[in-house]
Amino acid sequence: MDKTLVVIPSKCTGCGTCKLACAMIKGKGEAIARSRIHIYTTSPDEHVQLTCLQCVEAACVKVCTTGALVRNELTGAIAVNDDRCIGCALCETACPFGHMHFDTQRGKPEKCDLCLGNPACAQFCPHGALVYR
């Protein structure tokens, strides 16, 4: 784990390319609402991108009883192991930052896993507001 996804709100223009990239890669292009990165506009020239912080002592990991949320040693990201998940949905409410997305159709949560070390959002951000370094 030698790289981090750095969010630089001061450079963000709110264009939404990161959301689109995330939805295309992670949501299989289904809906931009399934993006795991969000942009909030606080004033006309201020936008804040938010995604999973990959907490060191993560609330989602603490409440999971089946070991379905595991940190990937290479990327440092916490990823969902669908096979081990029983769909109790507690991780969604437990996340203090609102970055667990429970897919009610599949009965499994979805979260940012840093695309296994090549985050699409950072790759596609045209303004350098998301950097993986």
């Binding site: 909030y40 804040v48 938010l50 603490k62 996340c95 203090p96 609102g98 970055h99 667990m100």
Partner: peptide, 28 residues
């Protein structure tokens, strides 16, 4: 489970908005 009651008070969207407010201040 290990977490106290205040982890379960807000919905996802409102939690994100709260974090946004803090980040926004930071970027200014």
């Amino acid at each position: 489970r290990e977490l106290p009651e205040d982890y379960y008070t807000q919905c996802q969207e409102c939690k994100r908005k709260e974090v946004t407010a803090r980040f926004a201040g930071l970027s200014m």
